[in-house]
Design a binder for these strands. Structure first.
Lengths: 85, 85, 85, 85
DNA sequence: CACTGGAAAATGCCGC
DNA sequence: GCGGCATTTTCCAGTG
């Protein structure tokens, strides 16, 4: 049951306000970082890199090496089954 | 575990092909409808309507149809606690 | 300028309604097909296929063969430059 | 054309590495903040708040801050034409 | 033809 | 553990 339900229609404005503001503050920071990331991609693009591929590289690095290998194998297996290899 | 893992590296090409083709067929149809929608927007634009606003009207109506009031009481209560009402 | 702007605040309700309803009708159909696609993925999963990889296979097939090859080469090139190959 | 295409198959590992690492660093920070946000929601939940509603409150405030009234006149006009006001 | 903004897809999370 | 939902990310069309 929620706080709302458990106290008959009254909520501490201060407590709630604090929570909301903390979240909003964090989301601002997060947005700032997202913007920074975007900037780096833009810069990379300016230097001649292909942003799309760059994203795939980052994603690949994030993946555990073994997992990556496994997925690649399954992928090829499916292509082979479809006669595409 | 995936099919791949469970049968030592072999996949029925026919079954997979059937699945893939069904999906591709459906995606084609879907694309066709997307094109139709785009056509309507284009036509509307030709008649002087603002496509951007049109989209917002559609979105608003969808929200209407769905819930619009779901959880609204609790929501208003929170807004009130924040001094926003 | 939009229709709205060009006729001093009046819009033909019938014409607009027709447009909106046509779009909504099409979007319903589209949603239905999306649901169908989801069903096929669910079924495939039930048969042991890895849905994630399946999506990649579909995407690969959609891509022009040459373009795919090019992207793969660039991808490997980047990995090599990073000492990951 | 990408850097790749323009230099016959070779990419400066150092430059690329720098770019990739900057992005990865930023994404780490971003993830950390996401975790912080999640923590706040968890804490709020522990105090009896409904996380789902909280999210809607935050979203509503964001819309407030942004525009809320952008294009609203045209929008209302269309709604009126549709008999929705 | 690059950029912005909006739609679509994919991923991840939370609940049962 | 799985399905549904919300968020995030990716893609694409419209615009200057």
């Amino acid at each position: 049951m929620t706080k709302v339900g458990s106290n008959s229609g009254s909520v501490s404005g201060d407590e709630l306000k604090s929570i909301v503001e903390r979240i909003e503050r964090l989301e601002e920071e997060k947005q700032g970082i997202s913007d920074d990331i975007k900037d780096v991609y833009t810069e990379a693009k300016g230097r001649g890199y292909d942003a799309k591929v760059l994203r795939r590289v980052i994603a690949a690095r994030k993946m555990d090496a073994n997992e990556r290998q496994t997925q690649a194998e399954v992928f090829d297996l499916y292509l082979a089954a479809l006669g595409m290899l």
